[in-house]
Design a protein around this nucleic acid. Sequence first.
DNA 1: GCGACAG
DNA 2: ATCTTGTCGC
Length: 219
Amino acid sequence: MHTEDWPSTIEEALATQERLRGRVDLTDDLPELPPTVTGLDVAYDDAGGIAAAVVTLETAGLTVVEERTHRAKAVFPYEPGLFAFRELPPLLAALDRLERTPDILVCDGHGLAHPRRFGLACHLGVLTGLPAFGVGKTPFIGSHEPPPASRGCSAPLVDAGELVGAVLRTQDGVKPVYVSAGHRIGLAHACRLTLALTPRYRLPETTRHADRLSRAALR
DNA sequence: GCGACAG
DNA sequence: ATCTTGTCGC
C-alpha cells in the first residue's frame, strides 16, 4: 500500500512506533470463538526476496476457507524490535487480497511482549483495525518461570514489572510458546484461542498453514 | 559499560 | 529467517 512513506531508517521507524503505540486498544469485544481465524507468515530467500502468506481457517474444524500470498523485495533490514517494518508491507498486501475480512489475526511474533509494547501483532492490529495477537516461538523480552509440563499450563511473562504476555504450553512436555495481546483482545482470551488452534502440534494451525504457503510462494 | 535481541 | 543428518518415538 503506502510503501512510499514507509520508514527507511531506524530513527523513522522508532518515531512511527512511538506515534502509533497509543492507538492500541485492549478492549476485548471478540466472541469467545470467532467464526474464522487468520494466520500470517513470511518466508525469505537468499536474494532479498520475501513472500507473505495469509490463511483463513474456519475455527471449528480448522479447515482452510481462503488463502492469499504476495511476493516482494525486503524494504527494511531485520532489526530486533523493528521487525514489523520488514514484514508488514507484504503482509498488508496479501491481506488486501482476501475476499473475506478476517475476524482475528494470529501473528508469528510478539505483540505487547516488545521493548516499546508495540510488536508486530500490535502494529498489524492498529493498521488494519482488526483484533490481533502474537504467538512467538522464542522469547524476546521479559522474564518468567517455566510453566508446568501439561498442555494448557502457562506462566506470566513480565517485563519492567508489567505483565506483557504468557508462556503457554500447547503440548505436554513440549517447549512452550510466547503469547501476547496485539489489539482488541485480552491475554487470557488469546491463550484460549491459541489452545483451540493447537490440538495436535506446538504451533497454531494458522501459523503452520501460513508458513507452508509462504515457502511455496517463494518459488 | 557489556551483551542479548521476535523473524 | 535460513543452512542441514541423524535420531528418537508414536
